[in-house]
C-alpha cells in the first residue's frame, strides 16, 4: 500500500512542482538566448534592455519560487490531505498512518532534491558554452593546472582527503536536514491541528519554537566542545569539528524520530477533523 500512496502523492505534488520546474528551465533558456544575442549582435537598444531586465526579473522570481516551494509544497500537501476535508478520504483508507507519513515525507524529499537539480541545470544553461569554458579556463589558470586531464575534481578530492569524515558528516547533515525540516513541519501541523481555532498559525509558531530549541541545543553543543578543547589542548581543530557535527547529527536524528512518532501517534489517536 505504501507504493500506492507514494504514486498518488507523486501525482498530487507533481502538478504543483512541474510548472515551476518547467518555468525555471524555460526562462533559463530564454535568458541564455538573450545573453547570446547581446554578445553576438552587440545590441544596446532600450527596448532590448527592457526585455532583458523583465525576463531576468521573472527568472529570479521563478528561481525564488522553486527555492521556497521545495519543502513548502510537501508541507502544504500533508496539511491539506491529512487535516482538512481531504483527511476524510486519506484517514479512512485501509493503510497504516505511518505509511501516510512516510509516503509524503519521501515524495517531499524527492521533489526538494529534484528542485535543487533543476536549479543547478538552469545555472548550467546560463553559463553554458563560452561562458562555462572561460570560467573553467580562469579556474585552471588560478589553480596553476597546466594539464586539463588532471581535472578539477581530482584536485578537490586530493585537497579534502584528510577531511573525509568531516565531509561525510556534512553530507549526512545536509541530507538529514531535508528530512528534519519536513518532519518538524509535520509534527507542528499535527500538534496545531489538535487546537480548535487558528490551527495553521499555531502550527507555524510550534515550528518556529522547535527550530529555535534546536538552535539553542546546537549552540550548547558548540560551547561544550569548545570547553572540551580547552581541557584537551592537543586535540586537532578537525576533531573538534567532527565531534560537534556528530553530536548535532545525533540530535537531529533524535528530533526526526521523535517528530515522526509524535505525528503518527496524533494521526492515529488524536485526529481532529472539522
Amino acid at each position: 500500500m505504501l507504493g500506492k500512496l507514494i504514486k498518488t502523492e507523486f501525482k498530487a505534488s507533481g502538478r504543483l512542482y512541474l510548472p515551476l520546474f518547467i518555468g525555471v528551465i524555460f526562462f533559463a533558456v530564454v535568458e541564455r538566448i538573450l545573453l547570446e544575442i547581446m554578445e553576438v549582435e552587440q545590441l544596446n537598444s532600450i527596448a532590448f534592455n527592457i526585455l532583458f531586465i523583465a525576463i531576468t526579473v521573472i527568472f529570479v522570481i521563478v528561481i525564488v519560487s522553486v527555492c521556497v516551494s521545495g519543502q513548502f509544497i510537501s508541507i502544504y500537501r500533508f496539511y491539506k490531505s491529512v487535516f482538512t476535508d481531504e483527511g476524510y478520504l486519506t484517514n479512512t483508507l485501509p493503510v497504516k498512518s505511518s505509511s501516510i507519513i512516510i509516503s509524503k515525507l519521501l515524495v517531499g524529499v524527492f521533489y526538494t532534491v529534484f528542485s535543487y537539480i533543476v536549479l543547478f541545470i538552469s545555472g548550467l544553461i546560463i553559463v553554458a558554452g563560452d561562458l562555462l569554458n572561460s570560467a573553467l579556463d580562469n579556474l585552471r589558470i588560478d589553480l596553476g593546472i597546466e594539464n586539463t586531464q588532471i581535472g578539477l575534481l581530482d584536485f578537490i578530492l586530493d585537497s579534502v582527503i584528510n577531511l573525509k569524515l568531516t565531509f561525510s558528516l556534512l553530507a549526512a547533515l545536509i541530507i538529514g536536514s531535508l528530512f528534519f525540516n519536513i518532519l518538524v513541519f509535520f509534527v507542528s501541523f499535527a500538534i496545531g491541528n489538535m487546537a480548535n481555532r487558528k490551527k495553521v498559525l499555531l502550527s507555524v509558531i510550534i515550528y518556529i519554537g522547535i527550530v529555535n530549541v534546536l538552535s539553542f541545543i546546537s549552540a550548547g553543543i558548540a560551547l561544550f566542545v569548545n570547553k572540551l578543547s580547552i581541557k584537551n589542548y592537543n586535540m586537532l581543530g578537525v576533531d573538534l569539528l567532527n565531534i560537534t557535527l556528530s553530536i548535532i547529527l545525533a540530535v537531529m536524528v533524535v528530533i526526526c524520530l521523535a517528530s515522526y512518532f509524535a505525528t503518527n501517534k496524533i494521526i492515529k489517536s488524536r485526529l481532529n477533523l472539522e
Partner: peptide, 18 residues
C-alpha cells in the same frame, strides 16, 4: 484498524474529493 477500514464504506458530511 486497517482491516475494518477495508470493509467499512464511509460517506462523511464533507466533500473530500480533491
Amino acid at each position: 484498524g486497517i482491516e475494518t477500514k477495508g470493509i467499512v464504506s464511509y460517506l462523511p458530511e464533507r466533500t473530500y474529493i480533491p
